[in-house]
Amino acid sequence: MKLYYAETLAPRKACAVAGYLDLPIDYVFVDLSQGEQMKPDYLAINPNGKVPSLVDGERKLWEADAIVCHLAQRAESGLWPRDAQRQVEVVRWMSWNSQHLYRHAASLYFEHLIKPWIGLGAPDQAKVAEAQGFFRKHAAVLDQHLKGRKWLLGNDLSVADFSVGVTLPYAQSSAMPLDEFPEVRRWHDQLNAFEAWREPFPARLEPAAAHA
């Protein structure tokens, strides 16, 4: 298997799950600053020109949530539940995250980390305030759900935890008001116990651009 990645949000999910599962994967760094994601050979793998992408034999797979589900299935790991109803719960939380929490947390990540990296200047404070407001709204939903639960699905860790939590390592550097939500903070602290979560990206000679 080959996993094409950059040191940004969506690939962090895939790299963290791959590392947690200790799968035999060749990691291929895609230099976004050089436009490598738009080169014809990469577009043949992922026509969206995005990262991550996974090549597993003849199969080419893109979208981080799909990739982490595939990796868990490939490893026959409990990160992908066997029970059909619990699989539906995984999809529900991944869908919720992409439409709500991730969307607004990623805006804060962009304003504070990506804009300076690509030379677009300081954060737009109006956009920051708006994104923080939405972050609070959706983090409150997550905080309530996590009361009495160790992980999103209860006692068992799943790919949903890796997906929903992916922006939170950047909470401090991106001005996400994470500390206002003690259950979310507690849950993320549990993820931080995993080395694959703390250090998901393979070592490279060049320093990471947006790696907090």
Rank of each mutant, 00 (worst) to 15 (best):
Met1Tyr: 01
Ala6Arg: 02
Thr8Val: 13
Thr8Met: 06
Thr8Leu: 08
Lys13Leu: 10
Ala14Ile: 06
Ala18His: 06
Pro24Trp: 03
Phe29Tyr: 15
Val30Glu: 01
Asp31Cys: 06
Gly35Tyr: 11
Pro40Cys: 00
Gly49Gln: 04
Gly49Ile: 10
Gly49Lys: 12
Gly49Trp: 08
Gly49Phe: 09
Ser53Trp: 11
Val55Ala: 05
Lys60Val: 13
Lys60Asn: 10
Ile67Tyr: 14
Glu76Lys: 15
Leu79Lys: 09
Trp80Thr: 08
Ala84Cys: 02
Gln85Asp: 08
Gln85Trp: 13
Glu89Thr: 14
Glu89Pro: 02
Arg92Trp: 12
Arg92Tyr: 14
Asn97Tyr: 07
His100Arg: 14
His100Phe: 08
His100Val: 00
Leu101Thr: 15
Arg103Cys: 10
Ala106Tyr: 11
Leu108Cys: 13
Leu108Gln: 09
His112Met: 10
Leu113Met: 14
Ala122Ile: 03
Pro123Arg: 09
Gln125Glu: 10
Gly133Arg: 03
Phe134Pro: 01
Phe135Trp: 04
Phe135Ile: 09
Phe135His: 06
Arg136Ala: 15
Ala139Thr: 11
Gln144Pro: 02
Gly148Glu: 00
Arg149Asp: 01
Trp151Glu: 07
Leu152Trp: 05
Asn155Pro: 08
Asn155Gln: 15
Leu157His: 11
Val159Cys: 02
Phe162His: 03
Gly165Asp: 06
Leu168Tyr: 10
Tyr170Pro: 04
Tyr170Asn: 09
Gln172Arg: 15
Ala175Lys: 08
Met176Pro: 03
Pro177Asn: 01
Asp179Tyr: 02
Asp179Pro: 00
Pro182Val: 04
Val184Thr: 09
Arg185Met: 12
Trp187Lys: 01
Trp187Thr: 02
Asn192Ser: 11
Phe194Leu: 08
Ala203Gly: 04
Glu206Arg: 11
Pro207Phe: 14
Ala210Lys: 10
Ala210Thr: 15
